[in-house]
Design a protein around this nucleic acid. Structure first.
Length: 492
RNA sequence: CGGGGUGUAGCGUAGCCCGGUAUCGCGUCUGCUUUGGGAGCAGAAGGUCGUAGGUUCGAAUCCUGCCACCCCGACCA
């Protein structure tokens, strides 16, 4: 008997998470502290995310470009709040050469002669280098807007890392736009928030709350930070994407002015927005179960796997032929199909393995099916199995893929709804935090009470939802007057 | 960065207290038999015991430093 490690999601959520990442071959730890290797299967999912997002960015008028990994310290520190916010987690390059160690043959040391005259910060984000560049690109309102995105890696020296959720180096995209007016920049910020929200919901099948961050949670250097927040299966919140209205802060720090129609000079208005490989963690923690990864069809590198069940070589060849017909028909409809013809493994093993990898639909085809003109069709999300006619299987699969995509979203939404509680007292609040979930509670709007709540309950305000209903009430924590409820949760 | 734990073959482990170069399962390879939910038998290969030192005739085992990972904190866009 093979020994398969079983990890229960309900028993130990983080152990379960690590198990999924490992067993589904998404990523692994590397020889570099805090840095991960994204394995081919995991990277294939990220590539599908990238492809879809990139299309959305282009459709909203953005172009891709690339800026340097290294940022001279003097540029980095130009926007003070931003620099301060990131200072504690910056990797810094101080030298540009190694040399043979005179005292230790075969070893290298940093050449003390090769000290840089100015240290280079490895980008934790690229506002500084980009706005320094934009200065040279912008003179007139005719040069605006500038709508640029870059796909890049960034480094934030985190103390405690978790695969995909928080690593020292991660992959992301960062959009950086420049506008002539404040209104236009705000419109851009909200537009990109909507892009992220619809990507999360339509592609990842992950419901999100769109909202505004409080001052405490705001991006360093931004006037306003918008975000999408998702609920994981343990009831904790995960910030899945952010879109920042940067005001004129970077324009002032980097002296980026333009001449308007009226001939007057003004500072440029800015936005930036990003999502990262953290979305991989969000994806895992939104849908997966004790049998392994569960992928929404729109992100699955393999959407359908066909497992042949055979005794003899002749059987196998007959089944393979049928399977390949189905495969071609599905592929013609844009579905990615894998025929698992490995002859050393039993079907049951293959079933379990593809379930572990989250393949949405499995077809099993044996001689019995061929005689009856049937095929077994199984869905990963509910693990239901049925037999269908070979004549309708292609249509059935197409329908099922749509069903699974919708079902995953609905299931996640129902879960979030059930775990979101309206809370009016400290007791209720604590109960929700301990059980996991979102607490919709009145808050008096002060940073001080926000801090104290964080200290006492380890909970933060995830966001103030957009179009938040206004209702007068009293802050559950201080009893002060409040005009709206905000979303509280413990967070990743 | 603090507290606790772990590190032995690709994976999971026994051995460690009480020193004598390593156990078992899975996987891998070969052969035969199997195949509708994680196959069986037979044979084989595979290990600087995380790493660097120290103690010792002898170290997986004892001591020290370092590294990595896990859990809990601190930190965190």
């Amino acid at each position: 008997m093979s020994e398969f490690k079983k990890v229960n999601r309900s028993e130990n959520y983080s152990e379960w998470y690590n198990y999924i990442v490992d067993a589904a071959e998404l990523a692994q730890h590397s020889a570099v502290k805090g840095c991960m290797v994204i394995k081919p299967y995991g990277y294939a999912i990220w590539e599908k995310m990238q492809a879809d997002l990139d299309k959305r960015f282009k459709a909203t008028g953005h172009s891709n470009a690339y800026f340097p990994l290294f940022i001279p310290k003097s540029l980095f520190e130009a926007e003070e709040k931003n620099a301060e916010g990131f200072a504690k987690e910056c990797a810094v390059v101080t030298h540009y050469r190694l040399k043979a160690d005179p005292d230790n043959k075969g070893k290298l040391i940093v050449d003390p002669e090769a000290k840089l005259t100015e240290e280079l910060v490895v980008r934790p984000t690229s506002e500084a280098i980009i706005w320094n560049t934009y200065r040279g690109w912008i003179q007139s309102y005719r040069d605006l807007p500038i709508l640029i995105n870059q796909w890049a890696n960034v480094v934030r020296w985190e103390m405690r890392t978790r695969l995909f959720l928080r690593t020292a180096e991660f992959l992301w995209q960062e959009g950086h736009t420049a506008h002539a007016t404040k209104d236009e920049a705000i419109a851009e910020t909200t537009q990109m928030l909507k892009v992220y929200a619809s990507f999360a919901e339509d592609i990842m099948a992950m419901p999100v709350i769109q909202g505004i961050k409080t001052a405490n949670e705001r991006f360093a250097g931004a006037d306003e930070t918008f975000c999408i927040e998702a609920m994981m299966q343990d009831g904790k919140a995960l910030q899945a994407g952010t879109s920042h209205f940067l005001g004129q802060n970077f324009a002032k720090a980097f002296d980026v002015k333009f001449t308007g129609k009226d001939g007057k000079q003004d500072y440029v208005w800015a936005t930036s927005w990003g999502v990262s490989t953290r979305l991989m963690g969000a994806l895992i923690m939104t849908h997966s179960d004790d049998e392994g990864l569960v992928l929404p069809p729109k992100l699955a590198p393999i959407q359908v796997v066909i497992v042949p069940i055979f005794r003899s070589e002749e059987d196998f060849l007959a089944i393979q032929e049928k399977a390949n017909n189905i495969k071609s028909e599905l592929e013609a409809k844009g579905v990615s199909v894998k025929f698992d013809g490995r002859d050393t493994l039993k079907p049951g093993f293959k079933f379990a393995e593809w379930e572990l990898k989250g393949v949405p639909v499995r077809l099993a085809l044996g001689m019995r099916d061929i005689q009856n003109n049937t095929i077994e069709i199984a869905r990963r999300d509910t693990k239901e199995k049925t037999s269908t006619s070979m004549d309708t299987v292609v249509d059935d699969v197409m329908t099922l893929l749509t069903d699974i995509q919708n079902n995953l979203y609905q299931r996640a939404l129902d879960f979030r709804t059930a775990k979101t509680k309206v809370v009016n007292s400290k007791e209720e609040f604590l109960k929700v935090m301990d059980e996991g979930g979102f607490a919709m509670a009145h808050w008096d709007g002060s940073s001080e009470s926000e801090e104290k709540i964080k200290e006492e309950y380890k909970a933060t305000i995830r966001c103030i939802p957009l179009n938040n209903p206004q209702e007068s009430g009293t802050c559950f924590f201080t009893g002060n007057t409040s005009k709206e409820r905000v979303v509280f949760a413990r967070a990743y």
